[in-house]
Write a protein that binds this DNA or RNA. Sequence first.
DNA 1: AACCGTTGCCAACACCTGTTGGCAAACATG
DNA 2: CATGTTTGCCAACAGGTGTTGGCAACGGTT
Lengths: 193, 193
Amino acid sequence: MTPSAQSTQPRRSDATRAAILRAARERFAADGYERATIRAIAADAQIDPSMVMRYYGSKEGLFAAAAEFDLRLPDLTSVPPARLGEVLVRHFLARWEGDETLVALLRAASTNPGAAERMRGIFADQLTAAVATFGSDPTLTARRAGLVASQILGLAFTRYIVRLPPMVDTTPDELVAWIAPTLQRYLTGTPPS
Amino acid sequence: MTPSAQSTQPRRSDATRAAILRAARERFAADGYERATIRAIAADAQIDPSMVMRYYGSKEGLFAAAAEFDLRLPDLTSVPPARLGEVLVRHFLARWEGDETLVALLRAASTNPGAAERMRGIFADQLTAAVATFGSDPTLTARRAGLVASQILGLAFTRYIVRLPPMVDTTPDELVAWIAPTLQRYLTGTPPS
DNA sequence: AACCGTTGCCAACACCTGTTGGCAAACATG
DNA sequence: CATGTTTGCCAACAGGTGTTGGCAACGGTT
């Protein structure tokens, strides 16, 4: 190991690591877990397949590194309660349009148990935590978060994966206008009897 | 070919064909398109893998036969307009709980272009047609159908694929109570400005 | 200079994939 | 009985998969 600083010293291979990660995200997003081969990812990164193994241990390890995802949810307590739905839809759409990590995770979660587990963790932890900032009943909170996840993931699934024409052609603003009231009710609506 | 009736004569291999189809649906639903191997399907059906090829031509042909799916949507004109959402959610939940074909299609659509195309067709044709029975503007009709599909597929995705705990634990009746108003608004609500 | 850890590539392993052709038994028909 | 078709299995092919070990070139340190 380098004698001076241990962690702050940038390694020469960091560029390679980053190139692999970028290619991996692209391939996982485009093809899903099983069809995205290590050889193809390595070719995209212009590197030997064995390097992927050395730096990430295995295909699962590579995916784990490539599919790290933070929803980056804003602090919901500083949002006017009546606009929660609108803020959330807009945030998610913006968060996804420029980052293919979520698409990769979504595609992989359909067939790869580990990816599904990770997706469960993301929405159970991050989204439930954000929803829990208001409301006290944990069961109801979890249910609200689940319902929000169902509409949000359904939006992503139909727009980015299946590419249903009406969901692809509609502008983000129009989608927000339609879907915001749904999330608003899931978040703050009174539970049905 | 048999000299007598051409199509009505039941062939001796029909049982085998059906066994293959049943095993294929199970495997495709459980593992997705790429991880469901012909060898595994044949083993489940207790026959030789080559038989699958003879009867269905290829893996894609087998999937095409196994993933034939009819939403069986009821005639929406005979439903009280105010209860459209409730009827639809209840119908979809009931339609899926006992038939794994939709789950197979859902899993496969994430990674297989052909499956995605089929899913597009199902929701574009069957659902849009049902929605089109009321309302005349074709663009608006398509958009309403797309929005309904996004919530419906999001429900299926979170409940049957990712298995988000709150979406799995909630009873169908409670899900209907929460989600019906959403579909109701997507179907009959006035479009946002 | 000599030394040693790092970075990279090549070749290969063991395994699994969809798919094919041939051959034997079962069956139906003349 | 003889004939042709159907049903089934076995063995194999050609290609792709994740993964591994060894070996050459580079880089900084002493």
